[in-house]
Design a binder for these strands. Sequence first.
DNA 1: GCGTGATCATTC
DNA 2: GAATGATCACGC
Length: 224
Amino acid sequence: MQPPHTPPTSADDLLARCQAIAGLSLGELASLANVAIPANLQRHKGWPGMLIEKWLGATAGSKPQQDFPELGIELKTIPIDAAFRPLETTYVCYAPLAGQTGVTWETSNVRNKLQQVLWLPLEGDRQIPLADRRVASGFLWSPDAAEDLELRQDWEELTEMIALGKVEAITARQGNALHIRPKAASGKVLTDALNEDGERIQTRPRGFYLRKSFTEAILARMFG
DNA sequence: GCGTGATCATTC
DNA sequence: GAATGATCACGC
C-alpha cells in the first residue's frame, strides 16, 4: 500500500481512502510513505496532520482554503483519548484583525472552513509512543442548524469586538463553541490591528479554535 | 509575516 | 487536571 498520487475525485473516494488507513498506526503509515518518524511532537506539532494529508491525497501547501477545494471538504485530524474524547482544541483559521468590513457569518472564513469537515481522529495520548498511535475511522460532518447558530453567535461576538478595536480585551474564555487564542511562531510576531480610537496598533496574531466540548459532542454522536 | 499543520507548557 | 496563552516547523 502506498499514498495516492492524485486528489480524491469524490467524497466517496475520499472516504474509501480513509477506510483504507483506518486502524493503522502512524508508524506504519509513515514507513509505507517513506516519511521519517520524529521521536515526539515537541518540535513537529503538525506532523500527524501532514502525514494524513499525504495519505488522503490533499494538495500540499498552505492555501487559506479547504484541503479538498474541488469537493468543498476540509480535513481535520483530531487527537483523542481512549474514550474518543478530544485531547486538544481544533484550529480553524486566522482571525482577521485589521479592517475587515462587510464580512458576515455567511461569508466568513470560519463558516467556509467548517461547512464540511472530514474528521480523522487519532490516538493522541502522550503515553502512547507516536509510532504506535492508531488512526480511527474518518467521517464527514457538517454543522446542523443548532451548531451553526452556536458558531455564528460566538463568531459575531468576537468579530464585533475586533471591529470595535477591542482585540486586546478578547480572552480565550469567551465563546461557547468557538474562541480566539494567539496563533504565531512566537510572542515576537506582530500584526496590524485597530484600537478603540481606530488607530493602528501592533498585536499578536490570533486564530479561531473550536473548543473541546464542541468537538467532543461531534465525536460522541459518531462513536458514542 | 501569513497561513498551513497543530501541540506544548505554564497558569489557573 | 484542564484550559489558556505560547510556541514549533515549513513554504512562500
